[in-house]
């Protein structure tokens, strides 16, 4: 057993234990770690945004545009910056409504830009992967492909909202939800395994890096 003499390892171990103390109940040590974590993360985010966003995308390009007398480049940076700055109008009671403009721009932009990727990845790619292009009764792969097609079709029935889930539609939708639940069960088991490996990593840190009990 060789306990670590590194101050930072002690600090990390202390914070790990304070966070784990939440498993017993909410307590002052957890509150301390929670506030420290939130405060440190916000501070870190501000520094990152300042250097990697404000400087990289606003200040430096504006400087460059001014030096090169690039009017178009200057406008292309200035307009989005002004739209972004409108968010700060929320600090004023009388001018707070101005914040709705950048909200409208943001909502419109993101909704529009997600249309094509959504169609390609959520529809075309999935349909392409599900379509049965050949079938060989002697091949297990063909039967899996058929099962996939049946699963997708019945699951789609479950997600019809305009039709009452009764009769044929109801029965098909029920088969579909069985497929969904089996998939969720598999996903649950897989993810739990991944989470357990995270816990093992933390325990390894405590027993190896900190206490030196295990090699």
């Amino acid at each position: 057993m060789s306990i670590s003499t590194n101050l930072w390892v002690w600090l990390a171990a202390f914070l790990t234990l304070t966070i784990y103390s939440f498993l017993y109940k909410d307590n002052i040590m957890y509150k301390f770690a929670e506030h420290l974590f939130v405060g440190a993360s916000v501070g870190w985010s501000i520094a990152i945004i300042w250097h990697l966003t404000v400087f990289q995308y606003i200040i430096d390009p504006i400087k460059e545009a001014v030096l090169n007398k690039d009017v178009l480049g200057f406008i292309l940076v200035l307009v989005p910056t002004i739209i972004g700055l409108m968010y700060f109008s929320r600090f004023s009671r009388s001018k707070g409504w101005i914040a709705r403009w950048p909200i409208a721009v943001t909502m419109g932009y993101y909704t529009g830009i997600s249309i094509t990727p959504s169609i390609e990845t959520n529809i075309f790619k999935q349909v392409e992967g599900t379509i049965l292009t050949s079938f060989n009764p002697g091949s297990l792969g063909s039967w899996w492909a058929l099962l996939l097609l049946v699963g997708v079709v019945t699951t789609l029935f479950y997600f019809f909202f305009s039709v009452k889930h009764a009769g044929f539609v109801g029965r098909t939708a029920k088969v579909g939800i069985w497929f969904v639940m089996i998939a969720f069960g598999a996903s649950f088991g897989y993810t739990v395994m991944a989470r357990v490996s995270l816990l093992i990593g933390r325990i390894q840190f405590l027993l190896h890096d900190w206490l030196g009990i295990i090699k």
Partner: peptide, 11 residues
């Protein structure tokens, strides 16, 4: 709160 995932969860 914060944009850091687990700090947000802790809070």
């Amino acid at each position: 709160i914060t944009d850091v995932q687990f700090a947000f969860v802790a809070a």
